[in-house]
Design a protein around this nucleic acid. Structure first.
Length: 566
RNA sequence: UGGGAAGUAGCCAAGUGGUAAGGCAACGGACUUUGACUCCGUCAUCCGUGGGUUCGAACCCCGCCUUCCCAGCCA
């Protein structure tokens, strides 16, 4: 991780307090330790897909909590099910976490590193009479599961310890087919909590594991594996999402019945929902595979790689995650809050540049042909240290189509015949008319400038309400601009179940070709961050597919528009 | 119907017996060479609901209502 990012994080305020911290405060002794150990958390993704903003919340909580208590946070790939996982995701996950600004030092682990220990624990449980080999098929187990008011059953529950021991070893040795046998914890077949009705803790999967190869053909289930992983890594607080609440008794059962180091404790919090998008891996995958978006890193996706490409900054996402808070209430945060956090960050840091997305030519009829003059303009009026750049001005320039109206409505303060407007940092110009094609479309706008107003000043003190951006028609670079909108037309696509694709917003991407950007933008490309404010329109970043010959900008977020047409 | 959890403004969210923080959104206004930013102001007589305890309740007690999660050999 770069020094710059580390410094950036150090300068940020400490993570806001929440109910988890209250619990930790109650857990730890005066020296800040929990059972003699530093507070130690972990972020344990399953390497089966890309990280999204929901994971960012968990990452900020896991790493942020460790930072707050001067503790540690591990990164661990939870790879206990080889049928679903792939190494291809591991590097992407690491990259995204680093990009977000967090680091695990040398504490990067795989759950599969503990397969031996897990096997040992399983044998221990069998020896204690707390686990048995069950020969029920998946279907049978389902049938024998009982229901809300009737207990489950298994004819194998009272199998002698020696028999289970032998069978389990044979399972490990590959003597049985997949699905023929499982190892089950002997807990409580009548529990109202189905997770405690003798849960399967080992199953047979005759498939090569991306880390352990063919060493194993039996694999531990999450509920059995996770507490062991946590214990082995000295985790003190195992933070996870709400749906694991009723797995906690099982987590504790494993901790209490196996010989393990430490007393990790599980605490659950609500996962993040954001409106007008979906967060489940399954649905995101469906959009990628169905061609509804252009890949996992499509700028419309809530994935971290998508947000990154869109122009979201790590800091804005960290701030967002910190400010939405942590609680146990299922909640859906409004997208506008995420946008606010981005604008806040970029307003402070992004270089201002003038770019015209819907160009229309403005001709200043009383300005000498062939003349060019220059103006110095601040890169960021909110931050003098960002300095100034030089832009050129001549007789013809491009202005935004929406900045001219032949017949203005009430309150419109841009260009219309007879009205004065300021060309940002250049001159005050007065509109004198326009030219239209046979379809009545305006093709050129005419104006006269006031030579006394160089720099946009009004020495006579007159007020000019409108200030518009422009680009010198003799000195600009051409660009393609991607404008994005919500991926879904409805606030809660999940409410449509598997039909969620039916409410996808088919206008979520609008591509604008032939946009005109001030030529000076090229000077920013090398060492400066590639996020810009296109004055009056929004924050944009250079897309990774840009080339020197073809610039592509993505609109990360528009500027707030306080102008109401009434 | 069994078990687990949660209900404070349009959306998040503090608050843990002493009289409802903050942010986003929205709406007014000031400022403005970005209709941005910034600044000022408005926005819950009330905390799902009905009782009870108390001098005093969003906080404690009892009942009810609503929502979410759980019957994978997924995580």
């Amino acid at each position: 991780m770069s020094d710059e990012i580390i410094k950036e994080i150090e300068n940020e305020e400490e993570m806001a307090s929440n109910f988890i911290h209250t619990m930790i405060d109650n857990d730890i002794s005066e020296d800040g330790n929990y059972y003699g150990k530093k507070v130690h958390t972990r972020f344990p993704p399953e390497p089966n897909g890309y990280l999204h903003i929901g994971h960012a919340k968990a990452i900020c909580i896991d790493f942020g909590t460790a930072q707050k208590y001067n503790g540690l946070c591990n990164l661990r790939m939870d790879d206990t099910n080889p049928t679903k996982e792939d190494v291809e995701y591991v590097d992407a996950i690491k990259e995204d976490i680093h990009w977000l600004g967090f680091d695990w030092d040398d504490r990067f682990y795989y759950a599969s590193e503990y397969f031996d220990k897990m096997y040992e624990c399983a044998v221990e449980l069998i020896n204690k009479g707390l686990a048995y080999v069950c020969e029920l098929s998946a279907q049978q187990m389902h049938d024998y599961r009982g229901d809300l008011s009737t207990p489950a059953t298994s004819p194998y529950r009272d199998r002698p310890i020696e028999e289970s021991l032998a069978l389990f070893e044979r399972m490990k040795n590959g003597e049985f087919e997949e699905g023929k046998m499982t190892l089950r914890a002997k807990i409580d077949l009548a529990s109202g909590n189905f997770n405690m009705r003798d849960p399967v803790i080992y199953r047979i999967n005759k498939i090569s594991h991306h880390r352990t190869g063919d060493k194993w053909c039996i694999y531990p289930m999450y509920d059995f594996a996770h507490p062991i992983e946590d214990a082995m890594e000295n985790i003190t607080h195992s933070l996870c999402s709400l749906e694991f609440e009723d797995h906690r008794p099982l987590y504790e059962w494993v901790i209490n019945n196996c010989t393990l180091p430490g007393n990790p404790r599980q605490i659950e919090f609500a996962r993040l929902g954001i409106n007008n998008t979906v967060m489940s891996k399954r649905k995101l995958r469906a959009m990628v595979e169905g061609g509804y978006v252009n890949g996992w890193d499509d700028p419309r996706m809530p994935t971290l790689c998508g947000l990154r490409r869109r122009g979201y900054t790590p800091r804005s996402i960290r701030n967002f995650c910190d400010r939405i808070g942590v609680s146990k209430v299922n909640s859906t945060v409004e997208y506008s809050f995420l946008e606010h956090c981005l604008r806040e960050d970029l307003n402070e840091r992004a270089m201002r540049v003038m770019a015209v997305i819907d160009p229309i030519k403005l001709i200043i009829t009383n300005y000498p042909e062939g003349k060019t003059e220059t103006f110095d303009i601040e890169n960021n009026p909110n931050n003098e240290d960002d300095g100034k750049r030089t832009i050129t001005f001549s007789r013809e320039c491009y202005i935004e189509g929406s900045d001219f109206l032949e017949e203005p409505f009430k309150g419109y303060q841009r260009l219309y015949p007879g009205n004065e407007v300021r060309l940002k940092s250049a001159y005050i110009v007065k509109c004198t008319g326009c030219k239209k094609d046979e379809n009545g479309i305006v093709t050129e706008v005419y104006a006269e400038y006031d030579p006394e107003t160089r720099g946009g000043n009004t020495p006579d003190g007159r007020k000019v309400r409108g200030t518009i951006h422009w680009v010198d028609a003799n000195n600009f670079v051409e660009a393609t601009v991607n404008l994005y909108d919500n991926l879904f037309k409805v606030p809660d696509p999940d409410a449509y179940g598997d039909d969620f694709l039916s409410c996808i917003n088919e206008k979520s991407l609008i591509v604008k070709e032939d946009c005109k950007v001030e030529a000076s933008i090229a000077t920013f490309f090398d060492d400066a961050p590639k996020s810009f404010q296109f004055m009056r329109t929004g924050y944009f970043c250079l897309d990774k597919d840009s080339t020197k010959d073809k610039l592509i900008f993505n609109r990360a977020v528009s500027l707030k528009d306080g102008f109401k047409k009434k």
